[in-house]
Amino acid sequence: MPTPNVVLHVADVHKRFGGLHALADIDLQVEEGQTHAIIGPNGAGKSTLLNVIIGKLAPSSGQVIFDGAILTGRKPYQINQLGIARVFQTPEIFADLSVLHNVMIPALAKRDGAFKLNMLRSLDSEVGIRQEAEHMLEDVGMHSSRDMHAGSLSRGDKRRMELAMCLIQHPRLLLLDEPTAGMSRHDTNTTIELLKKIKSRGMTKVIIEHDMHVVFSLADKISVLAQGRIIADGTPDQVRGNPKVQEAYLGGTH
């Protein structure tokens, strides 16, 4: 078996908040093109782990390596410019702007970099960026709402738009923090369909999830986190049959 290409490597990460050991000895390897799910009961440290990966929190020790570059100590915008996009638990969108502009902004970030004093051009003359954004919106099935205020979208549509905002940057790694949290069953299902569609394009994804239905229908690999430690690692089938996992979920903090 050829050694798969590891895109993201979380190496021996510890995170302490005062006396609380939120993450202990986390070692995680995400392979190129795979959808890697991190699951665990509430308070297991899932969000902390995600925040360490994205640079919002600094680990107490250990480091995060993405494609040969150490992420630890970089700012969120620098991490994004390396090719990592993030979907938040509560969609982080530009509520005051139109849907189309919401999707054009990340496309401009991809093209122009972290800062460009682009004052002389008119946004109307950015035809290429605009077309790209319109295609992206068609792709996620939101083209008809492109002129709406993003703030007035339904929760499910906000999530779809946020995904479009990430996907237009063609990230090498997409991080999803509970992408279906707080959604109706209908919205959950459309989001899963969309994520499956993206999956077929071979983008690497790390998904933090609570909902087993979502995890087992999407993930290639699952890591189970409980009380700050990884207690199991493997394919969905391996994890499902693991007695430790069943204990963590059924007899643990839950």
Partner: peptide, 17 residues
């Protein structure tokens, strides 16, 4: 306008605000 609307999203979108 993006900064006014959501500075967090701007940062995670790759902008140095």
């Amino acid at each position: 306008k993006g900064i006014k609307s959501n500075q967090t999203r701007m940062n995670y979108t790759g902008f140095n605000t």
